[in-house]
Each structure stands twice: as C-alpha cells, then as structure tokens.
Design a protein around this nucleic acid. Sequence first.
DNA 1: GCTCCATCTTGACGTTGGCAAGTTGGAAAC
DNA 2: GTTTCCAACTTGCCAACGTCAAGATGGAGC
Lengths: 208, 208
Amino acid sequence: MQPQEKSYHHGDLRTALVEAAEAVLTERGVEGFTLRECARRAGVSHAAPAHHFKDAKGLLTEVAALGFERLTEAERNARDDESDPKNRLLGTGIGYVRFAIEHPAQFQLMFQKGLVDHSNARLAAASSAAFQVFIQAYSELYGVTFPAGMHKDTDPSVMREWALVHGFATLVVQGQLGPAQSAAGIANLMKFARAVFEDAQKYGPPIR
Amino acid sequence: MQPQEKSYHHGDLRTALVEAAEAVLTERGVEGFTLRECARRAGVSHAAPAHHFKDAKGLLTEVAALGFERLTEAERNARDDESDPKNRLLGTGIGYVRFAIEHPAQFQLMFQKGLVDHSNARLAAASSAAFQVFIQAYSELYGVTFPAGMHKDTDPSVMREWALVHGFATLVVQGQLGPAQSAAGIANLMKFARAVFEDAQKYGPPIR
DNA sequence: GCTCCATCTTGACGTTGGCAAGTTGGAAAC
DNA sequence: GTTTCCAACTTGCCAACGTCAAGATGGAGC
C-alpha cells in the first residue's frame, strides 16, 4: 500500500489483486466475481494476473485460504471473549457465525466446491486450523482428547457441534433467516445464534 | 416425453429445458451450468429458452423449486420409514441429508443466494413446505405446537434441529466430509449422519 | 553501461447471456 | 377451405468473460 503506489512496472500486484478480489466479492458476491474486474481495480491489464495466479481459481483459492485464516482468528477472539470457561465452546461458534455474517461472500467462497483448488496446501492447512480451534474448545469443555490431526468425519459429538454452528452460519449467509445487512439485523441474528447454541448446550453432555 | 418427440415447431420445450438443466447440473455442477448447453440438449437454438423463461435465473429458479418439492418428499418418505415414533424427527433429517447427497448440485442451487429468484412464489412455497415437514416432526415428537406459517427464525429449539441437519448436509455437499460418490462412501456418510443425529437426540429435551 | 528476464501490455479466440429482427406453422376465425 | 394471426423458434449480433500467444518495458545484477 505505502511503498510507491505507482511504480508502474512494479508494485505489489499480487496482494493488490487479492485485495481487489475481496472487494469485488464483497460488493458483487461470488457470482459477480470476474478476474478482469480485479485487474481493472488493481490498475493493470486483463492479462496481468496470469503472472501471479495460474487462473481465476488460483486467485480465489488464495482469497479462500486467507478467509480460513481469518475465520480461525475470529473463532479464537470470540472464544477468548468469554470469561466463563464453560462458554468457550459456545464462543467459538459465535465467532464462526459472526465471521460468516460479516464476510458472507468470502464464507460462501470458502465452502464452495469447484470454485477453489482443494489440493492447495495453504488452503488445506488453513481449513484444518479453523476446525482445530473447534475441536480444541470441545476437548477442553468436555474433558476428552482426540488424536492430533483427527479427520473431520470421525467423532459424532464433535460433528454435532460443528454441523450445528456451520448450519446456522450457512443458513444466515444463504438468506434463509432474517436480513443480515443492517446493524440491527445482525445484532438480532447474533442474539438468536447465541440462543440456539445455549439451547443446544443446555441439553448437551454433562460438563466435567 | 411420449407425445411427438419431434413436432419440430412444438413439443414440450419448457419441461425439456428443465430436464436438460437438471442433467447439466448433475454432470457439471452449479458453476458448469450454461443456458446454451441446456438449449443444445433440448435440440433448440440458443435463444429459444427466452420464450419460456425470462433468463437463466428463471430456469434455475424453476429447477430449484422442483428441488424443494422433491426435498419435501424425501423428508416425508424417510420419516415414514421409521416405525418407532420417536425416530420420525430423526428420519426427517436423514431424508434431508440423503437428498443432498443424491442431488448435490440441485441442493447447492436451492440454497445459493443470487442464483435463483427468491421472490418467485412457487419457490417460496416449496421452500416453506420443506421446512414445515421439519417443524411438524418436531412438534409431534416433543408435544409442542407452533403457529401455522411460523417464520423460520423464531424458535431456537427448532432452529437447533434444522441447523444441525442442514449443516451436516451442506458439509457433505461441500466436500468437507468424506467422499460421497461411491455407494460405499454414501453408505458411510449416511451411517455417520444417523450417529450424529442420534447423539444429538440423546441429549435433547425430554420426549413427551 | 549492458544484458537479461520477470513483469506487464496488446491482441486475438472461443464461449457465454441477452437482445432484436426475421421466419414458421398450427389454430382460430371467417 | 382458405386466410389471418401470433406464439414459438431461428439467425445474427453485441458486450463481456477467461485464457493464450506474442511483443514491449524497465529494474536488477553483472
């Protein structure tokens, strides 16, 4: 950003494209994304991105990986907002939902098969990390341990928690629940999310 | 299908296009869908669909509405497969997941904002009906009643059930869990789904 | 001061969705 | 039985897209 915005031949085009892609996604949604628009916003020709990303999917994969890293951060932050240790798992889910609400297009991209390259190493690592925060919070709350690097589809109890949170987040993003644009709408949805998760925890396994 | 496949000027192009669209979605996924390919498969020119659907979104909306109607049927069938009345809610969820696994592209389409016209009456009705089966099964199991035509985002307990099922289904469709292509993979996932839902029910509210 | 090559540009190709204008042929009207 | 009409379909066009190939450019390193 700061170092010579107009060095013309150079400049940090790679990150500029990633930032442009995020802006396009935010403004126009996943299906409104075009590679050429990203190039325009970065101030380069339409063929320039090819020198930094193999193709459109390559750029989107980078954005998705970044999204998973931010999702992980959002989970951790919301978890650490909870003073009561019993609420740390709940908080993780709240952070998950809040990220989805605040970055709906990125969230949609991250979890949409075919739009990103799932064999990408950074993406896989970031995706796994986001899941690990979840499993860690579960382990701490219920006093159980799981093998490191456990597959996502192993334990029904962990899956129950993740599916609940992910289901709520996707329903919001997909517009199946109330409007998530205005600040009031967001606040309502977040309150509702907490109510749902608390309801689930109320009937959950005994807490150690 | 039967009546004069080649009347040339006529024929049931509307339904032919819908069937072609479903085939394209199945073969190429949501992002591989093109209106022109549908026209090709129906044996008409690329501009013919415009006389039956306003645009590509119009055709996809029809397909999505049909999908919701089939989802409703799948929920009911799986629910009625359960002899034990306590398992009728669980069965509804199983039917939901099975539909998603067997028609991943359609499922993705149905729940993707921006690809379909959400103001479409038939789509809204079909979507609502699919939710109603769910809420009905919940009511019967737990002996509570909800106002007819209740909004989706009203009751935390119902939402907890729906989000869990929808979350599991989307995670499967999005490829976050195991492979869902082979018959063995599908069977594994369905078994896992049942385990997750049973786990949730184990800790659910007291059954009347 | 020269050379090299990564970076960027220009231009092209094939494909898409959508619009406009022309064609066709069955059904309704006479 | 002929004519008229209009919904259904075709052809042709446009702008925009992603991607590829070939040429231009200019800073880094020698």
